[in-house]
Amino acid sequence: MSGVSQKISRQQAVLLGAVPMAALAIAYLVAAAMRHAANPADRLLPLPGAMASALWALAAQPDPLTGNYLFWADTLASLQRLGLGMGIATVTALLIGLALGALPLARAALGPLVVGVAVIPPIALLPILFIVLGLGETAKVALIVIGVAPVMIRDLAGHVAGLPPEQIIKAQTLGASSWQVILRVALPQAMPRLIQAARLSLGPAFVFLITAEAIAADVGLGYRIFLVRRYLSMDIIIPYVAWIALLAIAMDMALVAGGRRLFPWAGRP
């Protein structure tokens, strides 16, 4: 059986997923080897050994000025900002999304505001956030929240508003109040959707995080990338970008695993 009805086992999926990644790695190694054969001092495509040495210096050797292990300090700072921003955005999306989706009055009052905020490019608000909130952590976290929360709210509200009306009518027939309908009917079905919305928001959240760190920070993955770019330190930039990708993949996998464990009835995400 082939085509749209073909079944792929987990082992086959892992193998098929690894093929393009391996091909990309081989293509990079070939290109890097060719450039270094022509110019041993080439810095555009560093060889794996150079990247490993540069990363080792940041991850395993303390900084002479601060005494910190810069790679881990950058990772911890970025994860704290990202975790706080995504946490606030997720809770906000759940509360407001449920209200907008389940209550017509709330949808009429707040719906246009949410749409208006959602269509504003968050990066355009960054100077305002820095002016109003300063250059500290608050502005960086606020950018992540403003960047992802409105989209998550719209997605969750649309999902709740699209629930079969028969479910609501049956609950009301059994004597459920509006809040009971929200808590017992809408909330359980909104939670799997919220996890999917959080998964889709991870990429934009990293974009806003790196942007804020590049402009105003003294530690963080984005700060380090934009600090060393002036020296053409691709042996640091490429490992940092790869590390960000690995962190995002790990977070996505954690959300998938959590969704399957908490809401097995919702199907595979």
Rank of each mutant, 00 (worst) to 15 (best):
A176G: 14
A157W: 01
G258E: 07
H36Y: 07
L79H: 03
Y69V: 11
I244L: 15
G87E: 14
I169W: 06
L15K: 09
A186Q: 11
A52G: 11
P121E: 14
L227R: 00
I236W: 00
L58G: 10
P121M: 13
A212M: 02
L156P: 00
A27M: 13
R81A: 02
V219Q: 15
I123F: 14
Q6T: 09
Q180K: 15
G3H: 00
A102I: 10
R10L: 11
I146Q: 09
K7W: 13
L255N: 09
R193A: 13
V185Q: 09
G101T: 08
S201N: 07
F263N: 00
L95G: 14
P20G: 08
A109L: 14
G3K: 01
Y231N: 00
E213L: 11
A176V: 06
V160I: 14
E166P: 02
L76G: 04
V145C: 08
I26S: 12
Q12A: 08
A257K: 14
S53V: 09
A142C: 07
W56K: 06
N68I: 08
P112A: 02
L15S: 12
L183P: 04
A190C: 10
A198Y: 04
K7L: 10
R268K: 15
P192M: 04
S2G: 14
L133Y: 11
M152I: 00
A93W: 08
I168G: 09
A52K: 10
D63H: 01
R10C: 04
A33M: 14
P164N: 10
M251D: 05
V114F: 03
L65Q: 11
G49N: 13
V114Q: 04
I249P: 03
T75W: 00
L125R: 06
Q61P: 12
I153C: 12
L221Y: 02
F226E: 00
Q189A: 13
A57F: 08
Q61G: 06
A266I: 04
L247Y: 10
T66V: 07
W72F: 12
A254R: 02
E213K: 09
G116Q: 05
P104H: 12
V30Q: 01
V30Y: 03
F206A: 01
L202V: 06
T75R: 01
I8D: 06
A205V: 03
E213C: 05
L129C: 05
A33K: 14
I146R: 07
V160L: 06
